[in-house]
Design a protein around this nucleic acid. Structure first.
Lengths: 183, 183, 183, 183
DNA sequence: GATGAATGAGAATTCATTCAT
DNA sequence: TATGAATGAATTCTCATTCAT
């Protein structure tokens, strides 16, 4: 009965993603988004009361998607398989880390997203424990650091355009056995 | 007979540092800085044509300071000593990484700062080469990744407040020999 | 076979009344009204071309209702009875005064409502004349002031919550014989 | 040293007064005011953080001016003189009543201005008491109503342009001895 | 008749920047 | 040099109103 929508929430989220990564939290504006979608600013306010609500919703949505996939780590048999799964997942969702950082800038959500981050870590406790039980992971290293390290590795800027395969396998090697030889 | 300056560039840079880290690129304003220094906005424009020029100058200055110290790595004898020196330096200049990220947001400076980052890496080529010559560093890992990894490690958020000494020594261990056992 | 109306004009006017008194002319919006009636904004535009038309219609309607009752003043025998009737009527329609003030804010209706106000006064000429003929009302006081005074008395804010009966009888006393003693 | 001001706070308040009375609380905008003063909107924000702060300040200022004059009522000898003084004052500050009503619309100031109104009444307790002591004012009428009535009388709209002198003396007559004859 | 989308104009507010003194 | 004023552009947000279904 009503007029047909000029854009879907999916499209809106898609554009939001692009613009957010490109311009950052402060640089992202309703004007930018409206232009991307070829709609008026006002139209966006029908769906989200303000910028922060939009971004909060969007990032929660993305995080949920990511956590859903992360959950599948439990389907992998053995620590090594889980490790590979995790790295592959992280590398195919590079932007999630950036979004999380952006999320932390949204005023009023500090705890909310702090918690989310925390949850994600919690989520991987099983994986860590398994690694330590299997004697694969060094028991002396704090769990938080292990996870932090793995997640962080995705953020190392590849300024020199080293081929992805080399890059990724090197990272795995460092994570596993470090950059020092055993001599 | 000139009127005495109400503030020195040192003070200006010091406040800039504080405010920039606290509020980020967009959040940093001349108003904020002027208030911190108890001067008028207008006065700041006598020294820097605009916000971006100020920030560019400031970050270059900081980077120079850092590079100066980094240069001292050559005074260290042997790769192991240089490695320790580098890590200690990075951990005592945590904010440099943040400033670099901020620098990348300044429009028109993309390459400029890309280059600076690049230079810093260049700077450490000697260190890397030494490590590989001494047979300490795995020769298969790209130099850029080695440095990237080392620098990045400082940015892993210690959400669970693990004591610094444990944190740092664990990081060193991972960098050296990874998080996997050798079994 | 037409779809049944989801709301009657009576309901619409009733809600308009509430909202108008609560939020004032500027604060009253179609959105507010639509929500109260559980209809869409758009639906309201089927009945009234715009906000001002709605409010104009509504206030005219209310005024008509009020004038209808006011007309009954002629049924009262004698000036004293008419006086009591009038006061009782005014006190039981406190909001009419507010609506009239609001009406004066509607752009383009200045004269229209000026006239309406005027008419109401005209309406009570008979009452005034009777009072003066009966020698009850001081002939020196302009008719407009007599009516203005009576109507205005309803608008005195009772900040200290003096009981209505005391309040009203005191007002009557002032209107009749003033607040000064006769000494 | 700095540029000369294009407008003074006095001019600003003067224009505010005009515009506020003409357009009401909602209708009053910084744009309107800026235009009146031939300045940019932005300039106004140097003096007042926002519309409400401006209006609050302005109205407080006006009220203070008024209360200052009101205080002089104590210089008048005897109740009759005070009564005349009060009426003359009120009639020469017709707009104060309107401003007070507007003040009540400013969100967050409800109590603040409620109190101010209250204070003004308190201020006149002495006058009322004197009137009752001298046996001039009917002791049965609540003080609040006496004052309310006096203040309110200024607000009766003189739609028919009755000459001020007649209007005012008639009002005084009604206040003193009512509109009824003594028969 | 009714809906819900979309528009577009206007208002508040913030700042980088310019300018007269 | 420094000041404090003023500007103007950008941004957020709110509605009255229009429109396709």
């Amino acid at each position: 009965m009503a007029r047909e929508r000029k854009f879907s929430i999916d499209e809106l989220f898609h554009e939001t993603n692009q613009l957010l990564l490109k311009h950052g939290y402060d640089g992202f504006t309703f004007g930018l988004l409206a232009d991307s979608l070829n709609v008026s600013r006002g139209a966006l306010y029908k769906y989200f009361e303000n910028k922060d609500e939009l971004l909060t919703n969007f990032i929660f949505y993305e995080m949920d998607q990511f956590l859903l996939k992360l959950k599948q780590i439990d389907d992998q048999q053995g620590f090594e398989a889980q490790f590979d799964f995790l790295l592959q997942l992280i590398f195919s969702h590079v932007d999630i880390q950036k979004l999380i950082k952006i999320a932390q800038q949204i005023p009023g959500n500090e705890e909310k997203f702090g918690k989310l981050h925390f949850d994600m870590y919690q989520y991987l406790q099983g994986f860590i424990e398994l690694g330590k039980q299997e004697g694969k992971l060094k028991s002396t290293i704090p769990n938080a650091l292990i996870l932090g390290y793995i997640f962080q590795s995705v953020a190392i800027p590849n300024h020199f355009d080293i081929p992805t395969s080399v890059w990724v396998s090197s990272i795995k090697e460092i994570i596993r056995h470090g950059m020092f030889t055993n001599t």
